[in-house]
Design a protein around this nucleic acid. Structure first.
Lengths: 331, 331
DNA sequence: AAGAGCAATGCAAGCGGTTGCACTAGACGA
DNA sequence: TCGTCTAGTGCAACCGCTTGCATTGCTCTT
């Protein structure tokens, strides 16, 4: 690999001159510049980025992206895919690279440690936060630049983006009520996740507003899987009088539909996340588009902004809109 | 940020000693080691990886992954997701990081140039090769370490992995013939892709072997989409006498099923790629699992092997097995 | 004609580590 | 008692590039 000094020798100048030409300085005469450029071409010179960054105390322009589970689990989840798409787009736009890291269950927050200690990343995006999140604490206590997808429990000065889960579920429920439904079942994923809690809250708010009694019997908490949805629906079908179903996840909804078809009774139903399958299923599923791509994009942009402006004028775009996409399943 | 010299001062030793402790040299006495370690802890010292790599002429342990389209297109394609999972797993296992890059249509092979010139990547994985692939030429002529997912047209000494598309489609067609079907329609994606060509070849081989006439009328080439599959099926239904359908992609199959349902006639049908939807669709779709994860894993491992052993004993695992997964749609 | 001003370039000290070799002091054998 | 050996440590050069400041040779003033 040819280096700076080789080019300098060939062009008959000093290393500094070559460096300046490479940097595009106007202090160098046209003739010299020309000669240096030719030497570069002849030797097929490519600057060594590592040496460059060291000399510049430069940053790597690499952003670390920490996922909350192993690669298989994460990448088979449409939400994270969309987030990744958004982040990738933003990064590409601003000339950054993305380096993925996946957290394994066993060794808690070692992925983030490795990523940080390796020294390659300028900042880190966290894609999930739990209560008392170790990763979040890690980056906070070390002053590592970061942004978060999700709502941190302690807001402080962190950069984060999220949907308004309560609000959209409120609107969705309201919509179903307006259509004339009164016994609206609610099948959720685990309530350990704050977003499911919020969604339930939105549902309750809509009921309250329309003076419909909140009935625990038609509220089912599941593990968020197809089978979970299927089972929950079976439970609801047994003796419960309902006229419509709201779920917190498309997959749950598909499970429920599966169950309903078997029972021969198809209630109107809604999903959540607006996965591609909504289009292919029968009936096509009404769902909520949480614009995960936008979440990713914003999180990335906020971080880049922070890295480059060094905190001067932080972009803060906390809330990302949601869109209710109506399809056959509620018509 | 505390640096080596700070630790050295605090511990009352020279920089070399600290460096040696950090590297885990046994030449340093236990007491000194202890003192240095304490100083490190006290100053919260983290070695600067950039300086380290420069001094070591070390590699970055970052592998570039080049996708053939923009992030959205790639990440919404199950195949690439699975590939990415496999690669990620392998990389994590061997302590490497993955940096994604996406090719845009407009600026041909600039993504790979940037990635390479940036100097951050030790090697590159190409996820698709076309005839006369510019990216492939780029890495070859520059001697950049690389491995390929897919079959390069000029084999040479390249590292690559692929499925045997012809063989599996041969087996699948054979299977349908054994079930007693004789008028087997074939709906493919674009024949520009060598794998579709190979799949058709496998189909024809099976027909030939069973002395079934190859009839061009029941062969439909589509753009590989749901609509394409749907349209092709409609075409087949009009006046054609068929008793079974083989497709080269799950999505095509879903489109075809959609069409069949409308027409009220459900032929046995097979997909390809074994996407998750196969499980959720009705009927559940028989498909071919091409083990994309394994493809990714192997490609990554081959590359790492090359990087580390520096070509001494190349692992070459060209062929990756496929599995025919039978479900309701062919029962 | 001599000093001032300026454009173009070189010198050399870093950036934060690593490492071959030199050095020191204590242990040991003769 | 004195040389030899060795374990433990420091010195200083180096990795490839950047950059403040010094230097050089002009042109321009007065």
């Amino acid at each position: 690999m040819a280096k700076l000094i080789d080019v300098a020798k060939l062009a008959g100048v000093s290393a500094s001159t070559v460096s300046r030409v490479a940097a595009g300085s106007e202090k160098i005469s046209k003739e010299t510049t020309q000669r240096v450029l030719e030497a570069m071409k002849e030797l097929n010179y490519h600057p060594n980025a590592i040496a460059k960054s060291l000399a510049n105390k430069m940053t790597t322009k690499i952003i670390g992206l920490l996922f909350p589970a192993d690669s298989s689990a994460v990448l088979h989840n449409q939400f994270f895919i969309d987030v990744l798409v958004g982040i990738s787009n933003c990064a590409q736009e601003y000339g950054y690279y993305i380096m993925n890291a996946y957290e394994k269950e066993d060794n808690n927050y070692s992925a983030i440690q490795k990523m940080n200690k390796s020294g390659w990343v300028d900042g880190i995006i966290l894609t999930t936060v739990r209560e008392n999140d170790e990763n979040l604490r890690y980056v906070r206590t070390r002053g590592i630049a970061h942004s978060i997808i999700g709502t941190p429990h302690i807001k402080s000065s962190a950069l984060w983006v999220d949907n308004d889960n309560k609000e959209v579920m409120y609107r969705l429920t309201q919509k179903m009520i307006k259509k004339g439904y009164k016994r609206i079942a609610f099948i959720s994923g685990s309530m350990e996740y704050i977003y499911n809690e919020n969604r339930l809250a939105g549902y309750r708010k809509a009921l309250r507003e329309s003076k419909i009694r909140y009935d625990k019997k038609v509220i089912k908490e599941t593990d968020g899987t197809f089978e979970g949805g299927s089972r929950a629906m079976k439970g609801l079908n047994e003796g419960m009088s309902i006229d419509c179903v709201i779920t917190t996840d498309d997959v749950i909804a598909f499970g429920a539909i599966h169950s309903m078809k078997k029972m021969g009774k198809l209630y109107p139903i809604t999903g959540f996340n607006n996965t591609p399958m909504c289009e292919y299923s029968s009936p096509k599923l009404t769902s909520v588009d949480i614009c995960a791509e936008q979440l990713g994009y914003n999180a990335c942009m906020m971080l880049i902004d922070k890295l480059e402006k060094n905190n001067k004028k932080n972009v803060k775009l906390h809330k990302v809109d949601t869109v209710i996409v109506e399809r056959e399943s509620t018509k």
